[in-house]
């Protein structure tokens, strides 16, 4: 297992180089001119424009720029075009919010999704099952941005039960869960709903499968009560793999966070990414892309490993 993990980690290196080259190519071939966007038109003279391009390294040939950018990215010295802040610092400021939001969304999606899936599997092809199916279908068909707006309209604008933006009350700092609770409810729901839908469907079908399996039949034939059969055998065997699908759904969460953090004005990485895209802040875009790719790859690896733990039949070669 240890050797397997190391090998997988090593395999990530060429993939990351691929990711960085691809993202860099997209940026470097862009027709727009970041120097022009960043330059202050009042102070801009022909010379200052040239100076700015040189400062941003825009005049170096592509491969040289790539090498320079990547080496400063690795040493942590890469700086935002726009703010001159170290990109790692900017990400460090935003990461906790995104992680907290992601964790809450996973918690929400997993618990509620499993609950719905189990209820469905226990009464397959019933009215309850249909409702659950419809719920999960809606869950992954609903546009994040619209769902968020509708919740804001209902719970913030009309009912005024929950705040519509921000992560904590004015003047508060730190991570006081009580203070922050009302602020994270709506974002968690929006971000977690897609996950919920996948989990519910997954649990339903793997529960149904488990209930058909030999060991369940054996348990039943031994005269065990139905509840014991469900909980001890079917549930345990079908829920462990659920944990692993979270790893594979990371890209979904990251994509969703871009929208959710934007609509709810949460100071997370997704919003940093959107701001950077519109400001042509290439160092920030590049770093976030690579950062997300690492997260996705590690998520996949963790899922594969956990899957092995959950299902001993899998061998790592």
């Amino acid at each position: 297992m240890g050797r397997y993990i190391v090998r997988r980690l090593l395999q990530m290196i060429p993939l990351l180089i691929g990711v960085s080259v691809l993202s860099y190519a997209i940026i470097i071939l862009a027709p727009g001119d970041p120097a022009k966007l960043l330059a202050d038109p009042e102070k801009m003279t022909a010379e200052s424009y040239v100076a700015m391009r040189a400062e941003l390294g825009l005049d170096d040939p592509g491969p040289v720029r790539y090498a320079k950018t990547m080496s400063s990215l690795i040493t942590g010295e890469l700086r935002s075009f726009r703010t001159q802040q170290r990109v790692v610092d900017a990400i460090g400021e935003r990461l906790p919010t995104s992680l907290a939001l992601g964790a809450l969304a996973i918690l929400f999606g997993l618990t509620l999704g499993m609950l719905i899936g189990i209820v469905q599997a226990l009464r397959p092809y019933s009215r309850v099952d249909d409702v659950g199916t419809m719920l999960s279908l809606t869950g992954f068909s609903i546009p994040h941005f619209w769902f968020a707006l509708m919740l804001v309209m209902l719970f913030s604008v009309r009912l005024r039960w929950l705040p519509s933006s921000g992560i904590r009350p004015i003047g508060a700092s730190g991570w006081n869960p009580l203070e922050m609770a009302p602020y994270v409810v709506l974002p968690t729901i929006v971000l977690g709903t897609g996950l919920l839908a996948y989990v519910a469907r997954f649990v339903r079908s793997s529960m149904l499968e488990a209930l058909e399996q030999d060991y369940t039949r054996t348990a039943r034939s031994k005269g065990l009560r139905e509840r014991v059969v469900v909980v001890r055998h079917a549930l345990r065997n079908s829920l462990l793999p659920v944990i692993t699908i979270v790893g594979f759904l990371l890209p979904l969460l990251i994509g969703g966070a871009v929208v959710v953090e934007y609509v709810f004005a949460l100071p997370g990485m997704g919003r940093l990414a959107v701001d950077a895209v519109f400001a042509r802040d290439y160092p920030v875009i590049l770093t976030i892309t690579i950062f997300s790719a690492i997260a996705v790859m590690i998520g996949n690896l963790a899922a594969d490993v956990l899957y092995g733990v959950a299902d001993p039949r899998i061998r790592y070669g």
């Binding site: 707006l149 804001v152 913030s156 604008v157 705040p163 519509s164 933006s165 921000g166 004015i170 003047g171 934007y262 609509v263 709810f264 004005a265 100071p267 919003r271 959107v274 701001d275």
Partner: peptide, 14 residues
């Protein structure tokens, strides 16, 4: 306290 909003609908509600 200067609050920062990215979306135009947010400050209005606040």
């Amino acid at each position: 306290v200067q609050r920062i909003y990215p979306d135009p609908s947010a400050p209005l509600a606040d």
